[in-house]
């Protein structure tokens, strides 16, 4: 079985995001870029399944600019077998991304597609679900545990009520939550080895996927700041202040 893992290149989660004064976007030029943390977890899970002999090949895919090769190389260094970059300088919407992934899925015929539950830039949390719909296959989102047995995956999902377990027939789409695993660190020899692994670059235009109609971003703004209050010295002062505010 093949496993396809989608990796998005995003601004690293430690970078402080600031909106440009003219409202045209966020000032992230030159910022540190990384694999979306949820996608890294998805890849780790795929690698563990391969190491447990549940899969033969792990393919990492990214849709993004030329520079997203860096994130794919990191994925290869972690242990993926080969990589595909669908090159696009424009950001794609989740539905567009799902359509692109769907064409790759039709070509590669994986038994499992693993993605992060959301990307930490647009926070959409849509692509995996959309891919599953287009593919007509099951989805198991927000996974914190995955067990493969024959043609079925049993997945524990982090939901608002607690932990939900569902069983899905393969092929299926699984999206990872933070507690699924802790991704490995890449070692220097693996980085060297990754340089020789295949990385196939395909311009988005060549895929023949039409972009769906989308909403336009007309303006970016910073969130309303919360005013810092003041510090109190004692528990009594705290209780008095809470009573004055009418919350006790």
């Amino acid at each position: 079985m093949k496993i396809l893992v989608a990796l998005k290149r995003v601004v690293d989660y430690n970078v402080r995001i600031q909106v440009k004064p003219d409202g045209s976007g966020v000032a992230v030029e030159g910022a540190k870029m990384s694999i979306n943390p949820f996608d890294e977890i998805a890849l780790e899970e795929a690698l563990r399944l391969k190491e447990a002999d549940k899969a033969e090949e792990v393919i990492v895919v990214s849709i993004g600019p030329e520079a997203a090769q860096q994130q794919l190389r990191t994925g290869l260094a972690m242990g993926a077998d080969r990589a595909i970059l669908v090159q696009s300088d424009e950001a794609v919407s989740p539905l567009h991304a799902a359509r692109i992934l769907h064409t790759l899925v039709q070509a590669e015929q994986p038994g499992l597609v693993l993605l992060g539950k959301q990307a930490i830039d647009d926070d959409s949390n849509q692509t995996g679900q959309m891919l599953a719909a287009l593919w007509g296959r099951p989805q198991a989102t927000f996974a914190s545990k995955v067990a493969l047995e024959g043609e079925t995956a049993t997945v524990t999902r982090e939901v608002d009520a607690g932990l939900e377990t569902i069983a899905v027939d393969l092929p299926a789409v699984i999206t990872s939550d933070l507690r699924l695993n802790e991704p490995r660190f890449v070692k220097l020899p693996d980085i060297m080895k990754a340089k020789r692994k295949p990385l196939d670059i395909r311009p988005l235009e060549e895929l023949g996927v039409t972009p769906p109609p989308a909403c336009q971003i007309v303006r970016w703004r910073a969130p309303e700041p919360r005013q810092a209050g003041h510090k109190v010295e004692t528990v009594d002062e705290l209780l008095t202040a809470l009573k004055e505010r009418g919350v006790l």
Partner: peptide, 18 residues
């Protein structure tokens, strides 16, 4: 988690952004 799980699947079936 309910809406986030379900609505994107609906959107893709309808061919619409969400």
């Amino acid at each position: 988690t309910f809406g986030k799980d379900v609505l994107p699947r609906v959107a893709a079936l309808m061919g619409l952004p969400q």
